[in-house]
Simulated scan of single mutants.
Amino acid sequence: MTRDERGGGADAVGPVDDATLALLLEVAGTPKPGNVDRRRDLDDLRFEAFLGGAVGARSGLELAAGSGIDAADPPAIGEAFERAVAGMADRAGTNTQFGCLLLLVPLVRATADPDRELSPAGLDAVCRATTVDDAVAFYRAFEAVDVAVDDPPPGAAGLDVRRGSDAEPALREREMALRDVLALSAESGGSAETGSGTATDSVDPDRVPDRNAAEWTEGFPRTFRAAEWILTDEGPLTDRAARAFLGLLAAEPDTLVASTRGAETAREASGRARAVLEPGGGDPAGPIGDVSAVDADDVHDADLEAAESLAEAFVAEGVNPGTTADLTCAALFVALRRGAEVAP
């Protein structure tokens, strides 16, 4: 049952409230191997920084929802994302939830837009409606924080996000909307099409694609699948989130781990998560391969006590599956909008 079906929910608890709560629940879930949670800090990142980031991002999320603004002419999605990141960075003092916000902003927009809905089709429509101005704002957001990213695909050096606003001429010359930019990162091999229709050179087929970018181009399949796991699970939402995190990591290698430690380490990390999810079953050497192949019962039965040792090992080894945490946050938002409650 959704908030609307329970009566008055959309008025009493809006999408911005649920997005903020999703940010807080994600970091409070434990164990999420290799990530900050309520029991673990990293050397350079503390739990409370994420709480500050969630509060600071709110003004950008409100912009995404069109709060207090003419709903018929809401602010651009890129502007909303840029403001959310700037607020996060200002309050947290660092990058805590950049990837979460990249997913939450279109989710909030789809929820708040009377012409859209919180569904794969609704999200696809929101993402396809983005513009070159949205892409420029997205690039400017990188100037507020330090984000770990791979080098751009061959032939796309001018579109390196680390250039920030300096990339604007290249974006406008190639007529790259925000979805076009993210499509480049989502590609795992072959050719990546630019907004002007010019193909770049081949991309390394062994690289781990950007899972957050893939959500933008595929209709958020990981987000909606993990939301189903959370909704059909039992117990505290923070425990459900931790189990969903394990399911997502077991399914596919984490983008942040691949960027910071290499693709092989990322695949090994997924295999280790799978060994926790499916003790004694299957080949733990690598990921399952697709989020749709993960059995919901395996997620619901995941042993969080067994995951504690993996969490300690990942922290000690510097394996930080941050992109998986982003997807977990997005899934929590969808679950909250569809009726999940923090109350017993």
Score class of each variant (00 low, 15 high):
R116N: 10
L249K: 05
P114F: 05
I288W: 00
D90C: 13
D17C: 10
L25R: 09
R39K: 15
L23N: 07
S188C: 15
L159P: 01
G60T: 01
P236F: 03
A251K: 07
V85L: 03
R46A: 14
A141V: 05
R207V: 05
T324E: 10
E228Q: 14
A129E: 15
A86G: 13
T323E: 09
E312Q: 13
L42Y: 07
E305W: 06
T2Y: 02
L178A: 00
D301G: 12
R338E: 12
A313L: 08
V147M: 08
T255G: 11
S188Y: 07
D204N: 14
G29V: 05
A167T: 02
A19L: 03
L159T: 03
L61S: 07
N212L: 10
F224E: 10
D233G: 14
V181Y: 06
A331C: 05
T20G: 15
L24D: 09
L107T: 03
D298R: 11
L51S: 11
T20R: 12
E117N: 12
D124P: 14
R162L: 15
G66N: 10
R240H: 07
D297A: 15
P344K: 15
P75L: 01
A86M: 11
A141C: 04
A54D: 14
E228A: 12
E305Y: 13
E5V: 06
T194S: 12
G197S: 06
R338W: 08
P152R: 11
L178N: 03
R109E: 03
R179C: 14
L171T: 00
A84Y: 03
E215D: 09
L246D: 04
A311Q: 13
A273L: 02
L182K: 08
D124E: 14
R222W: 07
R3Q: 09
A177E: 10
R261G: 09
E117F: 06
D37G: 09
T96G: 06
D4P: 15
F220Q: 08
V149R: 15
V105C: 03
P221S: 06
A92N: 09
D70E: 12
L123V: 03
A72I: 04
T198L: 11
G339N: 04
T30G: 10
S196L: 11
